[in-house]
Design a protein around this nucleic acid. Structure first.
Lengths: 229, 229
DNA sequence: GCAAAAGTGTTTTGTCTACACCCATGA
DNA sequence: TCATGGGTGTAGACAAAACACTTTTGC
């Protein structure tokens, strides 16, 4: 088919939807918006938007995420393309879903208010428009798979964190309790943490040491893969 | 945005490209076509086509695969959406890549001739149009990941096969030799094979028993996941 | 009878799991 | 001094890895 023949084919609206995960210290949460427009006005929804012909799909995802959170350089990964004919009652729109991991406090609250956004614990997500629940479900599964092979969880934690916080995160993602000693040994054996002299003093009298992760070792391990649970 | 506002957004050409894997008994191969049209006329390419507004993206993938191979009910999985602005010199086209696993002899040779298609061993793939090499690379990685957790390899083998053939397939996908005894033990412990009384007599004097797989157990295991290598 | 691939166990090694007590500190 | 979470080691079970010889049979 020539370039001219390309013109004979259907053109479709292409959107991007972002599953934005955060971690509140106890539970995983997803950032959702209350739609201020049709279709689905007043319903909860993932943050999304249309892909412009002058930008790549990845760029569109970054743009849309930035629009809601004000953040750049976020951990983001393409999930899947959702392409059912009837998925959006407003028209034939195919959507590429992305999932993003952000530090829950790192967002611009004014932007979030402007979008009527809210963090929902994953076990208390309201009903969502279109196929967004399915997207969320898939994202959750993918996150679990991902973290079992790559140390991406740090993207959800503050820069410095305690072992307790790290373990809670893994427990939230795996939806099962982990043994503290086995967890500690495993994490330390990966050799990606650096212990600070500073302690977190809010949650206990004794205080727990903060850790940061060693970015170089972390990136190396991210490429190589690991085996966790 | 209202339904009317949907109209204000750009519409894009959406295509599907299929990475079709087969196994010749020794090597993994990919089915490629020699393009008879521009852009990229005369170059090797993945089989692809445009998504029609009346069909889902998955349906488009099945249709396109059927067009080349004449087959239905093929193991197929969505890989990723490729959405760079400049990926196709013929215009702004985003493409959803799928990978398919087929039994290499199960295709209609007349259809393949009609499309100028050819099976290439993965280590001898010619240069490909657009970002198709990248798609192929990703598909290879994904297949490796997939087979380490799900027994999908059977889709690449004939209905009845020897343990030798099965092991060769895993070796081809993992790109490393495996120990015959450990392999046999592992496979048998999964309890998805059924030994036939018939022997394959071409490749040895003694002959090797054929096996078929137990579809029920296989499907159960596919859902649950397994751990292989 | 010999060449060529099929088939078959055991030992060693490392990894995962289960499990409980002392420590440091602020109130 | 005591209540609270922080930090630490070991033994047993299990799974993975390494490794070589005997069997069958067509030629």
């Amino acid at each position: 088919m020539s370039i001219i023949q390309y013109k004979d084919h259907d053109r479709l609206l292409v959107s991007v939807d972002c599953i934005i995960f955060g971690f509140d210290g106890i539970k995983l949460r997803a950032l959702l918006i209350k739609r201020g427009f049709e279709p689905g006005l007043g319903k909860w929804s993932l943050m999304g938007g249309f892909v412009d012909k002058k930008e790549s799909v990845d760029e569109a995802a970054s743009r849309i995420l930035n629009k809601l959170t004000g953040l750049n350089d976020i951990y983001m990964e393409q999930l899947s393309c959702f392409g059912d004919v009837q998925r959006d009652p407003g028209g034939r729109v195919i959507s590429v879903a992305f999932f993003a991991l952000i530090k829950i406090d790192d967002y611009s609250s004014s932007l979030i208010e402007e979008h009527n956004a809210k963090w929902f614990p994953l076990d208390a997500v309201p009903s969502l428009v279109f196929d967004h629940r399915q997207m969320l479900k898939l994202a959750k599964e993918r996150l679990k798979e991902k973290i079992s092979g790559h140390p991406v969880g740090f993207a959800l934690l503050p820069h410095k964190f305690t072992l307790q916080q790290l373990q809670s995160l893994y427990e939230a993602i795996y939806e099962q309790p982990l043994d503290k000693r086995n967890f500690t040994r495993k994490i330390h054996s990966l050799n990606i943490l650096h212990k600070l002299k500073e302690k977190e003093k809010h949650s206990s009298r004794r205080g727990a040491f903060y850790f940061v992760f060693d970015k170089k070792k972390y990136e190396k391990l991210d490429k190589e893969g690991l085996k966790f649970l």
